Simulated assay, not measured.
Amino acid sequence: MTTSALTPLEPTARTRVGRGRNRAVGDRAAMHAFLAEGLVAHLGVTVGDHPIVLPTAYAIDLDGPDADGSLYLHGSVAARWLQQAGGATVCVTVTEVDGLVAARSAFHHSMNYRSVVVIGATRVVEDAMERQHALDLIIDHMLPGRSATLRPSTRKELAATAVLAVPLREASMKARAGGPVDEPADAAAGVWGGELPVRRAFGSPVPAEDNLAGLTVPPDVTARVRPAV
């Protein structure tokens, strides 16, 4: 999917930003870039007579069968939440905290963040090639290039794993950046205000205890190691 082919990130009745409309992001390419950077999604689904929100790994595919791309989730076929989510309308959110905002009043304290909300009916991925592709994408979302270094999944492993696709068509994004927005009188009172940036960092790899002797850390792992910026 080329950038020129992207449809605008137009809100629907379910995704329209209410409060803080000035923080809404209408660029679908910006949403894709953020989803490619995030690591954890939270899936909201109704299980039985109550809602549940679960953290989960995910990946996106902009060239999949769903219009405007697909967001893939996976889980055990025995998981009750996944059984309920198949074909149901769900809400998926991905959030990254970029800073803590200290204001001069409790009312104006905030966080700098980027957040995406996706709402849509899930599609159970039945096609074997698409399922394998989705699972590879989820692995590569965590460690780019990792899936190509692994042995093929066994039939038993694939039979125990279900994959759901949520179309990226109905989505919204919000973002906040910068310092506090205080009343002039509060700023003049002399209380310190500002931002405490939050940055994600990956530490040095810790080898498994049962690694064979002489194994070095592979490039797909070392590529993730970088200091916070």
Rank of each mutant, 00 (worst) to 15 (best):
D136H: 08
T95A: 11
G75V: 05
A134M: 02
E126C: 12
S172F: 00
H108F: 06
A128L: 07
M111T: 13
T93S: 15
A160L: 07
G86T: 11
G87K: 02
R169P: 01
R123H: 07
A103T: 07
A165I: 00
V166T: 04
E170P: 00
G99T: 06
M111K: 06
N112F: 12
L164I: 13
R151T: 15
R104L: 02
L143Q: 04
V90W: 03
I139V: 15
V94G: 04
A165M: 04
G87D: 04
S115I: 03
E157V: 01
V124F: 10
H108S: 12
H74Y: 02
T154M: 04
G99R: 01
S115A: 06
R151D: 14
L100G: 03
L143W: 07
K156D: 14
R114I: 12
A78Q: 11
S147G: 08
A85C: 09
S147V: 09
V94A: 10
V116T: 08
L150G: 04
A159D: 15
S76T: 03
L168G: 02
I119G: 03
H108K: 05
Q83W: 02
R146N: 11
I139F: 12
L100W: 05
R146Y: 02
S110E: 05
P152T: 05
M142P: 05
A106E: 09
R131E: 08
S110T: 10
V125S: 01
V117W: 00
G86M: 11
T93G: 02
V97N: 06
R169H: 13
H133F: 06
Q84R: 13
A165L: 12
G86Q: 06
S147T: 08
A102W: 14
A79I: 10
A102I: 13
C91V: 14
A148E: 15
L143V: 15
V166H: 04
A148I: 11
L82P: 03
D136P: 05
V117K: 08
R146I: 09
R114Q: 13
T89G: 07
G99C: 05
H141L: 09
T95V: 12
L164G: 06
N112C: 03
V166S: 04
A171M: 10
A171I: 07
E157D: 03
R131D: 08
L135I: 01
A79G: 13
L168N: 04
L100Y: 11
L82C: 06
K156H: 10
A121K: 10
G86P: 06
S147M: 14
L158T: 12
L150C: 13
T93M: 03
L73I: 04
T122A: 05
K156L: 13
A102M: 12
S110V: 08
V101W: 02
N112D: 08
A121T: 14
N112W: 03
M111A: 13
H109C: 12
L137C: 07
A134W: 02
V118I: 15
D98S: 08
A102E: 09
A148W: 04
G86H: 09
D98V: 01
A79Y: 11
T161L: 03
D127R: 00
R123T: 11
P144I: 09
G99L: 00
